[in-house]
Lab assay of single mutants.
Amino acid sequence: HITLTNLITEETTHVVMKTDAEFVCERTLKYFLGIAGGKWVVSYFWVTQSIKERKMLNEHDFEVRGDVVNGRNHQGPKRARESQDRKIFRGLEICCYGPFTNMPTDQLEWMVQLCGASVVKELSSFTLGTGVHPIVVVQPDAWTEDNGFHAIGQMCEAPVVTREWVLDSVALYQCQELDTYLIPQIPHSHY
């Protein structure tokens, strides 16, 4: 019994991606959610070859190996599938703050939850000092008015990073160091 759908849910078992011959794909929301959820992320060749051979072929032979941004053979989907007991964002409290493009905020929040993070909706909701690490995620190029994202640091004691930190961490299924993704914050004294 196979159901085809464009939506990823808890029940989804396989995410089928358009890939090149070496099982490398573009980074899409579907790709990120498939990895975050520990699903099989496979090339569409799995479907076409299975139909051709009239049997369901082994997914291992068709698993996506990499993507056009993070590298052609990083094995993120395999790492995620085999590490669902070791979520990459466990112990983190993440607030997805401000506008985002090409990806609804609720989907970004679901993605970080699938990776083990707790989501907070407001900067004031962080449970500071409880052994949980707060992180604010923003997408600077989605902000149309002044660079308000440079002043988020005044509203909460949390590192502010770009959305790329989430996307790179999920694609590779390895929590990336914050340093290269940090957004400089204007210190309090400048006000």
Rank of each mutant, 00 (worst) to 15 (best):
N147M: 12
N70C: 15
K39S: 09
L4T: 12
T12R: 00
G91K: 13
N6K: 11
G71H: 03
N73E: 15
F32H: 03
E11L: 07
H188N: 06
F32Y: 02
I183L: 13
T12V: 11
K39I: 11
R79T: 11
N102Q: 15
Q49C: 11
R65A: 14
R90H: 12
W40E: 00
V69H: 08
V120A: 06
W110G: 04
G38T: 12
K39V: 08
I2C: 07
M111S: 04
H1Y: 08
P140Q: 14
T3S: 11
S189M: 13
S83A: 10
V137L: 06
E122L: 11
E82M: 10
W40I: 09
L114S: 04
I186V: 07
S169K: 01
F100I: 03
I152L: 15
C175L: 14
M17E: 00
E177A: 10
H133Q: 10
T162R: 09
R54L: 12
E22K: 12
E145D: 09
K87T: 15
M17T: 12
W110A: 06
G153V: 13
S43G: 06
E157S: 12
Q75I: 09
Y97S: 08
E82S: 14
E177Q: 15
S83V: 08
Y173Q: 08
S83W: 01
W143V: 05
G131W: 02
A117E: 00
K52I: 08
E59R: 00
Q113E: 15
N73G: 09
V15G: 00
I2K: 11
K121I: 15
R79L: 11
P99Q: 03
P184T: 06
E11A: 08
I186E: 10
T5S: 07
Q75A: 05
D61M: 09
C95L: 12
P140A: 03
V68R: 04
E26T: 08
Q49T: 13
H150Y: 01
D168K: 06
T9L: 08
V69N: 05
G76D: 00
Q84V: 14
K18I: 04
L7D: 13
H188V: 15
V42T: 13
V161A: 08
Q185K: 13
Q154A: 09
N102K: 04
S43L: 04
V41H: 00
H188E: 07
H133L: 15
G91S: 10
G71S: 06
E157M: 06
Y97F: 05
R90A: 15
M155P: 14
L128R: 05
N73L: 12
H190T: 15
H74S: 04
M56G: 03
Q185T: 07
L4S: 04
T162S: 10
E164R: 10
N70K: 13
E145K: 14
Q174R: 11
L123M: 08
C115W: 05
A117L: 03
E11T: 14
I88K: 03
G91A: 13
V161T: 03
D179H: 03
E93C: 15
R72Q: 07
Y191I: 13
E109G: 06
E10K: 11
R54T: 13
E11V: 02
R79K: 08
Q107H: 03
M103P: 02
V136M: 04
V136F: 11
F89L: 09
W165M: 01
N73A: 03
R27S: 03
S124W: 13
F126L: 13
D168E: 02
K18S: 14
P134L: 12
T130S: 15
H74T: 12
V138E: 01
Y191P: 13
T13R: 01
N147T: 12
F89R: 00
H1F: 08
A158E: 04
R163W: 06
G131T: 05
D179A: 06
I2S: 11
R27A: 01
L92H: 10
I2N: 08
E177P: 15
P187W: 12
Q154L: 08
Q185H: 04
E26Y: 07
V166A: 07
K87A: 11
G98V: 02
Q174W: 09
F100W: 06
V120L: 11
E145Q: 11
E22L: 09
E145N: 14
V41A: 01
N70Q: 02
A21D: 06
F62D: 01
V166S: 03
F89T: 02
I51Y: 10
M103V: 11
I88E: 01
K121W: 07
T101A: 14
K30A: 00
N6E: 14
D61V: 07
I94L: 07
N147R: 07
Q75S: 09
V160S: 11
E26R: 08
L178E: 01
E11K: 08
W46L: 04
K121D: 06
N102H: 13
K30R: 00
A80P: 01
T13Q: 01
G34H: 01
W110R: 04
M103R: 02
P104R: 06
Q75L: 13
T144K: 07
G34R: 00
H188Q: 11
L123T: 14
N147E: 15
C95V: 09
Q139P: 04
G116S: 11
Y97K: 12
V120R: 08
Y173D: 06
I183V: 15
A117G: 09
C156S: 05
H60P: 12
R163P: 06
V137E: 03
F149L: 14
V69I: 05
V136K: 03
N70L: 09
V41D: 00
Q49N: 09
L4F: 15
G37P: 00
L4D: 00
H150Q: 03
E59I: 13
I51C: 06
V138W: 09
Q113K: 14
Q84C: 05
C95F: 10
Q84R: 10
L182Q: 14
Q154T: 12
Q154K: 10
D106K: 07
R163Q: 03
A21F: 10
M56V: 06
R86S: 10
E157D: 11
H150I: 14
I51G: 08
H150P: 11
T3V: 04
N6C: 05
D146Q: 10
T12H: 07
T127S: 15
K78N: 04
E63R: 08
L167S: 03
T130A: 12
I183R: 10
H14Q: 01
L114E: 08
